[in-house]
C-alpha cells in the first residue's frame, strides 16, 4: 500500500519558537498510525500543521498525492482530511444537531449528510437522546462523541484524533475505543495521538515516538512492543 499521508522535513512553530524540527513520517501504509511521546514535544503542533491551522515554515505534506502544505484549513477539509482537535472544546453553546450540521458544511460532505448522520447515530446512540441539548451540558465522554461525530459528518477519508481519551474514565475509554475501531473498520484510516499506550496498541499498527519536535523512533508492524519497553522509551532509560 502506498502511504495516504506523507510528511517530509516539516519545520513549524509559533512566532520565533520552532516546535517541529524537520519532522518526517508517513501514514496509511500499514494501517492506522499512532503518535506518542511526552507533552510539549510537538504532537499537537504537527497535527495543526497537517490540517492547515498552522502554516509550516518549510517541508512538504502530501495527502493522496496532493501537496497540502500551506493550503487553508478549509481547503484541506475539502480534501477529506479531517482533524478532531484536543480537549473536545468544540462549540459549547450549540446543540448536537447544530454541530452535526456544521460537520456537513463543506461542499464535499453535504451530499452525504443524511447517510453520515445515520452512521453517527448508529455509532453513538447516546447522542440521539440528547440531540437538541447544548454541548456544554454534556459529559466529557459525550462531548468527545460529538467531536468525533462532527468529524464523521465531514465525510473523512483520513481521520486525525488528538488525545481522544483525555480526561475520560476507564469504562468510557473502552467504549470510545470500540467506536473508533468501528470507524477504522468502516474504511477510514486513522492517525491518533494518545497518552494511553494501551489504547494506541489496540487501535494502531504503526507507532511513532515524537520527541523534541522530531521522530525519535518508528515502530513498524511486527516489531510489537510491550508496555514496559514503551515506557522506557518515554522516559529515556
Amino acid at each position: 500500500m502506498t502511504p495516504v499521508l506523507t510528511v517530509e522535513g516539516v519545520t513549524a512553530g509559533y512566532g520565533r519558537v520552532t516546535v517541529l524540527h524537520d519532522i518526517s513520517l508517513e501514514a496509511g501504509r500499514f494501517g492506522n498510525v499512532g503518535l506518542f511521546g511526552p507533552n510539549g514535544h510537538g504532537k499537537t503542533t504537527l497535527l495543526r500543521a497537517i490540517s492547515g491551522l498552522l502554516k509550516p515554515k518549510s517541508g512538504s505534506i502530501r495527502f493522496d498525492g496532493q501537496d497540502i502544505a500551506g493550503l487553508s484549513a478549509r481547503a484541506i477539509v475539502g480534501t477529506g482530511l479531517i482533524h478532531v482537535p484536543q480537549g473536545n472544546r468544540l462549540f459549547p453553546d450549540l446543540s448536537i444537531a447544530d454541530c452535526m450540521a456544521l460537520g456537513a458544511y463543506s461542499a464535499r460532505a453535504r451530499p452525504h449528510e443524511a447517510e453520515n448522520r445515520e452512521k453517527v447515530i448508529k455509532l453513538f446512540p447516546k447522542l440521539a437522546q440528547r440531540w437538541r441539548q447544548r454541548v456544554r451540558t454534556l459529559s466529557g465522554g459525550e462531548r468527545q462523541m460529538v467531536s468525533i461525530g462532527t468529524a464523521l459528518m465531514s465525510h473523512p477519508r483520513l481521520l486525525i484524533l488528538d488525545e481522544p481519551t483525555l480526561g475520560l474514565a476507564p469504562k468510557i475509554k473502552d467504549e470510545l475505543c470500540a467506536s473508533v475501531m468501528d470507524i477504522s473498520r468502516g474504511g477510514v484510516p486513522l492517525i491518533v495521538v494518545e497518552q494511553d499506550i494501551e489504547f494506541l496498541l489496540e487501535l494502531t499498527q504503526q507507532l511513532y515516538l515524537v520527541n523534541h519536535g522530531a521522530v525519535a523512533t518508528e515502530i513498524k508492524p511486527g516489531e510489537s512492543l510491550d508496555h514496559g519497553e514503551i515506557m522506557s522509551m518515554y522516559f529515556g532509560h
Binding site: A73, F91, A109
Partner: peptide
C-alpha cells in the same frame, strides 16, 4: 464560539 474548530469543519 470557537475559531479553530470552525476552521476544522471547513468554514470560511
Amino acid at each position: 464560539q470557537n475559531e479553530d474548530a470552525s476552521h476544522l469543519v471547513g468554514l470560511n
